[in-house]
Design a protein around this nucleic acid. Structure first.
Lengths: 301, 301
DNA sequence: CTTATCCCATAACATCATGTTATGGCTGGC
DNA sequence: GCCAGCCATAACATGATGTTATGGGATAAG
């Protein structure tokens, strides 16, 4: 048996227009085409369906039983077609899509939420997945292409990962009311008597910090080792000690019992913005990445 | 702003074929068309959507983020189109539709269920509404076109109602073991001493019965007046009396404590098969009406 | 009864959508 | 470097869908 032809969308549109308008002439005006066009679309459809589409009653065309039976499905198809075209338009206007982000835990709770909220405000069709984890996992997710975009640090490259490094400004943070408050700029010498809260001793950033102290012949009095700048800030707030952290994190805690000043020598904290290199990013992902980089601008070195 | 064009079904089919097959060449084979046809359908679609549809990975075409976002809707549309064409095919094969039937209460419980069951057996897409009520209501429903088909009696026509009259054979019914069992044919004279159960005294059928008795100078000993033949049969089964009813009803009760014989003179019980005259019947309604008339054939006068 | 009006159907034609075949370019594996 | 496989493009045929012109049938008014 020969392939059964499915009706054409245009025929279904004409059908519904006549159902709604009760006459072919009105339906034609409704669709903005000529009356003979409707007439033929429907006579073709009736021939393909092989049953009558309308009955004539007092000069009105009323849908036949058969058409009434098909009507719900036809409406659904036309609705869905409109929806597809709406969503596709939203996609090109960067207002629809899904973005999967992997980031350091510190970002998930401090900077990122504000950036995301701002980004989503006028993009109602966009959805996101945000997954905070350790740098090694973030790297893995990029390689396996399970996420679209990653925010990490202490990362030195991988052939399957595209990386943009941004150097963040760092500052010295101390509790409100502390003596350091009177200084404009803080140097290792100013911290000679202070207990320091710092990142892991095997981290690049700690290495820079130590060298800065050594150059001025100041001993670095280590007190607490943490993994995240946000944790350091929390401890500083609670008066446990002093720390040097990214200004991004410091700014978040400023006014919550913590103050900060520039630190010299300049230490660079490198943040890596990564994504799978072999996977073409969606338009909306590209746009979010640009948006995110913009959000870092005030804190760049 | 110019009218946004909805994509064409063919483009969506091509899109899904490539998503499924991972290559345009395979998709073309799948759809039974040439590779350049697919190629152009998709390049057109990509231009209309204004974003990339596929990424190339190890020689495979994998759907872009954007396509993945649209995929569920596209699948639904294609499914619905297939369903519309399936249902329309079922309609022409008289295997889909809805029929609203109004009938006398007696029919709803005795003859009709078997006919309907038989009719629906190999028409899985067909649904029915069966509404039993008094003849006046059935007439009203036909006039207001709320039902497609009606089964009634004692009806003499109305300009808005198309009517086919069928004359049903009538028989005399009596309990098993009754003396009448020995007769081949029963006449009023045989019923001279019997109490009769009969329809309402203002009914045409009762009038015929009375005339039959008068012609043979036999007194008709009325015992119970009922509205329906089925009620008469029930009473006869319970030994309350004798009755003359349509063979259609008698046959239903035969073997349930009731027997029947032909009655002379012949009385005609007219059944009216009606439908709204101004409303074009659906194909499936026409087919059911034919089926129903067939079912009456064994009991026609 | 005749006429005017309205609505639909048909015909003839233009244009776009969708198929074909022919062909050439790119890429990865040998 | 060459071949095989796959996609893109060109040139063309045909079907789908629009147009205008026109005619026929029903209905209401004269």
């Amino acid at each position: 048996m020969r392939q059964r032809k499915t009706p054409r969308i245009r025929q279904l549109e004409a059908l519904m227009a006549v159902v709604v308008n009760g006459s072919m002439t009105a339906a034609a005006a409704d669709l903005g085409i000529s009356q003979p066009a409707i007439s033929r679309l429907l006579s073709d459809l009736a021939r393909e369906f092989d049953f009558q589409l309308f009955d004539k009653r007092d000069g009105q065309l009323v849908p036949s039983e058969e058409v009434r039976l098909l009507e719900p499905d036809v409406r659904r198809v036309l609705d869905l077609m409109r929806q597809i075209s709406d969503v596709s338009a939203d996609i090109t206007k960067r207002k629809a899509g899904h973005i999967r982000i992997a980031c350091l835990p510190g970002f998930a709770t401090s900077h990122l939420p504000r950036v995301v909220a701002d980004f989503l405000r006028d993009r109602p069709g966009v959805t996101m997945t945000i997954e905070p984890d350790r740098p090694e996992r973030i790297l893995e997710w990029m390689i396996t292409e399970q996420y679209d975009f990653g925010i990490t640090d202490g990362f030195f490259g991988h052939p399957a990962v595209d990386r943009t490094e941004v150097n963040m400004r760092t500052v010295c943070v101390f509790p409100e009311g502390h003596d350091l408050e009177r200084l404009e700029v803080i140097t290792p010498r100013d911290l000679a008597t202070q207990h320091l809260i710092h990142t892991r001793k095997d981290s690049d950033f700690y290495g820079q910090l130590v060298r800065g102290f050594q150059n001025e012949n100041v001993e670095l009095k280590s007190r607490i080792e943490v993994r995240q700048f946000t944790a350091a800030c929390e401890l500083v707030c609670n008066g446990v000690g002093i720390s040097v952290v990214s200004e991004l994190d410091a700014a978040k805690y400023a006014g919550q019992g913590l103050l900060y000043r520039p630190f010299r020598p300049t230490l660079s904290h490198a943040l890596s913005l990564v994504r799978p290199i072999h996977k073409a990013p969606s338009l909306i992902t590209l746009e979010f990445m640009a948006h995110f980089k913009d959000s870092l601008r005030p804190y760049l070195q």
